[in-house]
Design a protein around this nucleic acid. Structure first.
Lengths: 293, 293
DNA sequence: ATCATTATCTGACTTTAGTCAGATAAATAT
DNA sequence: ATATTTATCTGACTAAAGTCAGATAATGAT
């Protein structure tokens, strides 16, 4: 029987080898990898040089030299950044865009070539397994942190949350119909707003407010589709309960819609018990409460 | 909805990036990658330089130089090959072995570090998904070819096949008890022996012999555990039927044990129909025949 | 106005990863 | 015995990838 560690090492070896070969075959035509990476990273609308540097993790001098080389090839032009004339923005020229498109096309071809030997069922299995590996490898850098409840990040998460509800609720969802909450209620010292990130990307959120003295209420618990099944909902819930304890709350209540079966299961698993309806919000069907110990 | 190609590209990007970082953190301490690869490939018992060259796909001069560098560091020594004084064998010295062990340990640590953020269930899912990806990516280089039925390769496959039967049959399996077949029967012009490989590694086999004039018999159909679920059994069966047609056979018969449910399903799916027992071999429970068109 | 900081660029350098054309010596074929 | 082939090595070369120490110019802080 192959051990867990052997399985991982074998995966690492085989998969990187295979993808490396693929990359070489399809992309490694004539341009050094550094230049191709840069061409890609600049994107269709251009990007500041400092952004390129941090994103690719390269030395400033090195990036500069790569840009000069791409400029000489007529693929890139750099102009001063609009607000800060020290910084520069690199943009693709017309032929740079064409070149990037070509790289993009080849990258697609490389991806396609992995599917061609497979039948329909096998393709489906491969894609599912790839998604699973990618998701699970991402668990390591899930981080939960407090954010100002009125920050662009928090608002972005809320927009995702509302879109999700709109999609999931049989009756649709209109934020204006729901119970209105001022972002101040989710701010210290009354409450808190947590955002979960994978790397830089926000993938979940949750908010705590004070419902009555000593009783907290959890709202806006959202987990991005790409991150479901990784226990992030549980992590957020635990983190919110911890915050509630720190705020001296002795109980937490929350409500949920009948369509959100995973959420209901999560609450039950965490010792929440069903109670009488405690608001007249039209969306929730179930009301829960838990005493914090 | 993320497209298939986007999913694959995202997988390629994320997984290679992540494994690359890991590799760098754990292994990329102070030695160039080329030297580490060589250190690894030499193995604990030493290896001929030409083998190193072909295995790693490197230029002869380059390998030579890498070996000199490792020699200077006291990690490797080269001696003339026992039978051919032109060739040389590279062997690890004591400190070379230690160094390799250290690399091995770090590689294990790197693998382990992927598992640590996961709970038991997630670990299981990650490992399963990795195995699935690895297997399915390997489908592309499955190759079936004729082999001499008495070659070491064929015998290796047969040994695997017998071990599999021993493991699978309720009553165990002893090759000496089964119907005896001379390897000549599986050789042209009477029959054929096919071996399936993934890359270099043999992962399946199947044999065809002449049972009666114009009637072929398929024996020794084996698919390695690591390759099951990829349709290799089907490929081997189709290839054997094709060979039978080329040999002018008008029908094929075969037998199988009740424990080999996948095999039975495969035969039924391919139009084989159950017939009367046609031998007194103690192992088979079912007997099939198919008319070739 | 002055000073420190930030963003980029340039020149000079290094290491890594190779390639290629012989040179050398042993083995094999004739 | 001689010629050819094979396996390795050495010297001379190149390209890619990156590092580091200033130089320069714009910005922000005091």
């Amino acid at each position: 029987m192959i051990s867990d560690i052997q399985q991982i090492r074998s995966f690492n070896r085989e998969v990187t080898r295979r993808i490396g070969v693929l990359h070489h075959q399809f992309l490694g035509r004539n341009r050094p990898v550094g230049e191709s990476r840069l061409l890609f990273e600049i994107g269709t609308v251009g990007k500041e040089v400092r952004a390129l540097r941090t994103k690719l993790g390269l030395d400033s001098g090195y990036v500069s030299r790569l840009l000069r080389s791409l400029e000489k090839q007529g693929l890139v032009e750099t102009v001063a950044a609009p607000r800060d004339a020290r910084a520069r923005v690199a943009r693709l020229t017309l032929s740079g865009l064409k070149e990037r498109q070509e790289l993009d096309r080849r990258s697609d071809d490389a991806a396609t070539s992995l599917l061609t030997p497979l039948d329909k069922n096998q393709r489906h299995r491969l894609l599912a397994a790839m998604a699973e590996v990618e998701r699970l490898l991402g668990v390591g850098d899930l981080k939960i942190s407090k954010e100002p409840a009125d920050s662009p990040l928090a608002n972005w998460c809320l927009a995702q949350y509302y879109a999700f509800l709109e999609d999931r609720f049989e009756e649709g969802y209109d934020p204006a119909q729901g119970q209105r909450t001022d972002s101040k209620e989710f701010s210290p010292p009354e409450g808190v707003f947590l955002v979960a990130r994978r790397g830089m990307e926000p993938v979940g959120c949750g908010a705590l407010k004070s419902a009555q003295p000593g009783i907290g209420e959890i709202k806006r618990l959202w987990v991005a589709k790409s991150t479901r099944g990784l226990g992030l909902g549980q992590q957020l819930l635990s983190a919110l309960e911890k915050e509630a304890r720190l705020l001296g709350m002795s109980a937490i209540r929350l409500d949920t819609n009948r369509s959100l079966t995973e959420a209901k299961a999560l609450y039950l698993k965490n010792g929440y018990v069903e109670v009488q309806r405690f608001n007249d919000d039209p969306y929730p069907d179930f009301f829960f409460e838990k005493t914090l110990t």
